[in-house]
Amino acid sequence: MATDAALRRLLRLHRTEIAVAVDSAFPLLHALADHDVVPEDKFQETLHLKEKEGCPQAFHALLSWLLTQDSTAILDFWRVLFKDYNLERYGRLQPILDSFPKDVDLSQPRKGRKPPAVPKALVPPPRLPTKRKASEEARAAAPAALTPRGTASPGSQLKAKPPKKPESSAEQQRLPLGNGIQTMSASVQRAVAMSSGDVPGARGAVEGILIQQVFESGGSKKCIQVGGEFYTPSKFEDSGSGKNKARSSSGPKPLVRAKGAQGAAPGGGEARLGQQGSVPAPLALPSDPQLHQKNEDECAVCRDGGELICCDGCPRAFHLACLSPPLREIPSGTWRCSSCLQATVQEVQPRAEEPRPQEPPVETPLPPGLRSAGEEVRGPPGEPLAGMDTTLVYKHLPAPPSAAPLPGLDSSALHPLLCVGPEGQQNLAPGARCGVCGDGTDVLRCTHCAAAFHWRCHFPAGTSRPGTGLRCRSCSGDVTPAPVEGVLAPSPARLAPGPAKDDTASHEPALH
């Protein structure tokens, strides 16, 4: 009773807030009518008042009428009001819900409408889902798969039609296919003929059939049928067999079959498995989609049935006599038709004709302190090069084509190399640097090759510096006499390219 009084008091307290929050009759008014909170006449009256005075006034009048009803109607109103779709449509209802007392429970059932309790003993237990329907569909599909699609060729003596089998029958139906081979029951999904010589313990000319048996419980189990008994694959494991010639990621696949039913060829011909030897223990289905393919039931050349050999690369099948050149017997292992072999060759040939990528240039590290003349020119003028003790990398590039010797140069053309002071002394051009340390401070000019250098860098042994005729380390061993002091540049003949010694390969005349 306390809860009923509290709900009535809360409705009177929030009546105006609810009326202002509800700006549309749908969905709240319609939901109240659906849950029998508002009768039909009051529903029509509220809609009429909404058209006349507006939605807030109409709902305020409806809530005032609701306060005169019993506690069950008020409880049902609060339940409908706080439904998710009403809270989404009328956003101003959320503060009312947040301020609702926590001790007021809106989930209690309506009085007088409590459903009768059902004894637990009368409640049926839930049924577990079964796979009976899938099993029945598999039974119905198996006879259809064994139905012949056409008439065999005159040369083929193997013609068999499976008798119709009602689904209610649980007995196995067997077809006489000759040579002791028996087909599987209607619940078998796949059958492959297997030679009895590969099964340990088999006697006589009995041949087993590799099947997948579907049981009534819905589970499946792969086994071997020899005669009327089934054997699990673990009985046929043979770890010492060295003649297993397995197909790549293979499961067994029928390579020879008669049109209309699988079996042995007439005249004692023995149908073979995809792999010879003992049956392997793992009978998992292969991951290669080509091995799941269903080959055609007629020859791809003459479009006739009979004894066919199936290609492992495509769905086509052929007569042995229709092949070019014809085959006398079934080859062992994987067999592919000429079209598949030709496609494989065409895929391999473009790969062989692809040009080989060019090898990157060989990189040879230079000892610290040495650099090529090109690196000396590329440096920024007026700045010493940083990191001189790091190992430089010199790339061996292809030799350029031989060019004509340089033409003779006048001494005026070499004027930018040297600057003559007032006393006739050779001065260095701006930006000249030593080729060893890279520093341009207090550098000297070689009178023979006009290269800038430090005496301490080229002659670290402490050799005394002569007063005139300074030469760098590369030119100090040259027998050519030094030019007379005061000459602007060496003779043009000295600039012609010539053979250089091994220790002077990195010091070429550089223009500054």
Rank of each mutant, 00 (worst) to 15 (best):
G112H: 09
E45H: 00
G242K: 07
Q57T: 03
Q189T: 06
Q69K: 02
G150H: 13
R272Q: 09
E237I: 08
S250M: 15
K253V: 08
S185D: 04
E88K: 04
S24M: 10
R174F: 15
P266H: 11
V37L: 01
D70K: 15
R110A: 14
E167C: 14
P163H: 06
D4S: 02
V214C: 10
T46A: 02
I181A: 04
K161M: 08
A140P: 15
F59D: 02
P56W: 02
A261D: 06
L97F: 14
N244K: 01
Q94K: 13
E229N: 04
L106Q: 00
P254L: 10
G91E: 15
A33W: 06
F236C: 09
L106R: 02
V192A: 05
I209Y: 09
L49A: 03
N244I: 11
G263S: 13
T232D: 13
C223G: 07
K111H: 05
A61T: 05
P129E: 01
L75Y: 15
A140K: 07
A21N: 05
G268S: 11
P109F: 12
A140F: 15
F26I: 00
I181L: 06
S24H: 01
A73P: 06
P200Q: 12
A25Y: 00
E88V: 02
E216A: 06
P119T: 15
V214R: 06
T147G: 07
S64G: 04
E207F: 06
R92C: 04
A73D: 01
G240M: 11
S220M: 12
P124I: 15
R139H: 06
F236L: 06
T16C: 03
A271V: 11
A121G: 14
L93F: 03
A21Q: 01
P116W: 12
D23S: 02
K83P: 01
E216W: 04
S169T: 01
E45R: 01
N179R: 15
I74A: 02
A6F: 14
K114P: 02
L106F: 08
L273E: 07
Q44E: 00
G208W: 03
S248E: 04
P148M: 05
R127P: 07
P162G: 11
R79Q: 02
P148L: 14
K52M: 15
D23R: 01
P125D: 08
P95H: 04
S250A: 07
R8I: 04
Y85P: 00
V188K: 07
F82C: 00
L49P: 01
K120W: 14
A142G: 13
G112P: 12
A258W: 11
G218M: 10
L175C: 07
K50A: 00
G267P: 08
P163A: 03
P154C: 06
N179L: 10
K50S: 15
T72Y: 03
I96M: 00
T183Y: 01
V20M: 05
S195P: 08
A261Y: 12
Q44S: 04
